[in-house]
Design a protein around this nucleic acid. Sequence first.
DNA 1: AATATTTTTTAGTTGGGCCTAAAAAATAAA
DNA 2: TTTATTTTTTAGGCCCAACTAAAAAATATT
Lengths: 220, 220
Amino acid sequence: MSTSFAEENYLKIIYRLSEGHDEDISTNAVAELTQTKAASVTDMLRKLAEKGWVNYQKYQGVRLSPAGEKIALGIVRKHRLWEVFLVEKMGFNWDEVHEIAEQLEHIESDSLIDKLDEFLEFPKTDPHGDPIPTKNGVMPELGYLHLSDIKADKRCVLMGVAKDSAIFLQLLTKMQLSLGATLHVLEVNAFDRSISVSIDNAPAVFISHEVAKNILVKLA
Amino acid sequence: MSTSFAEENYLKIIYRLSEGHDEDISTNAVAELTQTKAASVTDMLRKLAEKGWVNYQKYQGVRLSPAGEKIALGIVRKHRLWEVFLVEKMGFNWDEVHEIAEQLEHIESDSLIDKLDEFLEFPKTDPHGDPIPTKNGVMPELGYLHLSDIKADKRCVLMGVAKDSAIFLQLLTKMQLSLGATLHVLEVNAFDRSISVSIDNAPAVFISHEVAKNILVKLA
DNA sequence: AATATTTTTTAGTTGGGCCTAAAAAATAAA
DNA sequence: TTTATTTTTTAGGCCCAACTAAAAAATATT
């Protein structure tokens, strides 16, 4: 069965909202991310349920069926591979690629994606450190920690971001925070939960809790 | 003003039908290429005329306005650049890229196309020898001849094809006819207008008029 | 010039995906 | 536990881009 542009977007968004927990997703949550109204979401959920891509009971929220998850993972895979292409081959910055990848993720050609994957030398993560689902629909678990959870005196490496809005990414760039940076957490400031961090051994700077929450690291 | 997927397809098809002559395009001709019915075309032509992209008077046929031509050339430019990408970078054959490029041509991002153009080292033609419109909307005139018009004893070089259906292209490949091949027309056979041609100095083979008509060459 | 044929347009529908407004269900507060 | 609030669904419409069937215009034929 073939999927429309709109259907693919819904499945992708339900997937995103489901990551990391096991509760059903509310109609309103979907409406917010799809930039539509709750009534429109209800319509679409009924259709998706009919096609067997979600489990949906009215007033009970929604979750992806195995078939729906497979489609969603395919879209995420395409999105992230295209992002790698845009940054690595086309010279875009990591804050510029999201909107373009939102379009490219709907291009339908399995052989194109296979060839793109090979051309990019089988990347494991996208430019924001997010894992790229495998061809057979498995999302690798990378198990990164949030910088906001790192204790004082620990050292770690910046592996990814938990948010890819352009203004957030631009701020990181301004602060010299890019993938692979080594971070030495010197102090956690109780007052505002900001942290003092030495980035790549430079003199320490403050990082707000809000920012630290959205930075993913692994301990060095 | 922004253009929908469907509108872009209509403009592209009207452009294609207009190339090389100065008559208005009939509703039926458009219907055939868009794979829709004449009634649907009439609807769309009215809309395109309202937006100022075509000149259309009912029962009189249609032609692109300067604004419409500019949009059409932009689509064709994207289509052909993506085809170069698919063949040169992704390793597709020239008969495999049309459908994928039909999708990619609607991706909206000027900076992406600029970067793609640069990445491909500013190609002048696509994998079928068709000229790529410039960024400012000019279609280069290459002035090739049809192989069917070449006189006996002349030598020429295969520069392009006038049709890009997969079965035609696959036949050419089977016959060792690819871009850049040198062709020596030995004889024009009056009976069926087939021609005897030596390809890259190999022993002569027959090429039907139907095939020769769709091969573009320049004299050597 | 009158008639037949072909092409094109109009009129009326359809389905996809969205909307607003109102009703119904679920949840929170008194 | 009754009432108020929030969330979700239904009902009814809208716009886009397609469709069929019938009418009208253009073109071809006799």
